[in-house]
Computed example of a mutant assay.
Amino acid sequence: MFGGGGGLNPRKMKQMMKQMGIDVTEIDAEEVIIRTEDHDLVFDDAEVTKMDARGQETYQIVGDPTEQAQGELASADADAGADAGDADDTDEGIPQDDIDIVVARTGAREDEARAALKANDGDLAAAVDQLE
């Protein structure tokens, strides 16, 4: 990152980043999914770091992803949900966890979050954009 950074003290590095206006936060992520047009990249137990540099948020993911065919993850999640007695899913098939994320991110009511997720085919980012 910085030339010859092998001997750079981590505390000194944090201090330098703070001086540059960069705030670094570790995120305790259980799973990270990157959805592409052709496949999904699934990171289990990934190390996720969020860097906020003057309002511009950047996420760094470190881990070994598994590549899954498009839709394979959704069917595996549906099977797991069926095994769990569908406790987390609403009547529209939108997971309660997704609704909670949209509510927390936007401050919208639960029914508004559910409607936005349904209108955007369950796409969290699109639902958040719609409500912000």
Score class of each variant (00 low, 15 high):
3 G>N: 09
8 L>R: 14
10 P>E: 07
10 P>K: 08
11 R>F: 13
12 K>L: 13
15 Q>Y: 14
16 M>S: 13
17 M>A: 15
20 M>F: 11
24 V>C: 06
26 E>P: 02
29 A>W: 07
29 A>S: 05
29 A>C: 06
31 E>S: 02
33 I>R: 14
33 I>V: 09
33 I>D: 03
34 I>C: 00
34 I>F: 08
36 T>P: 00
38 D>V: 10
41 L>P: 01
42 V>I: 08
42 V>W: 03
43 F>M: 04
43 F>D: 00
46 A>Y: 07
46 A>N: 02
47 E>M: 12
49 T>Q: 11
50 K>F: 06
51 M>A: 12
53 A>W: 14
53 A>H: 14
56 Q>E: 13
57 E>S: 13
60 Q>K: 15
61 I>G: 05
62 V>H: 08
65 P>K: 00
65 P>M: 02
66 T>H: 01
67 E>W: 00
68 Q>N: 10
69 A>E: 10
77 D>Y: 14
78 A>N: 06
79 D>I: 09
79 D>C: 10
80 A>W: 13
80 A>T: 14
80 A>D: 15
83 D>Y: 09
83 D>W: 07
84 A>G: 06
88 D>N: 10
89 D>V: 06
90 T>M: 01
91 D>T: 11
92 E>L: 05
93 G>D: 11
95 P>S: 14
98 D>P: 01
99 I>P: 02
100 D>Q: 04
101 I>F: 11
101 I>V: 13
102 V>E: 04
104 A>S: 15
106 T>Q: 06
108 A>Q: 04
110 E>K: 15
113 A>V: 04
113 A>P: 03
117 L>G: 07
117 L>H: 05
118 K>Y: 05
128 V>K: 01
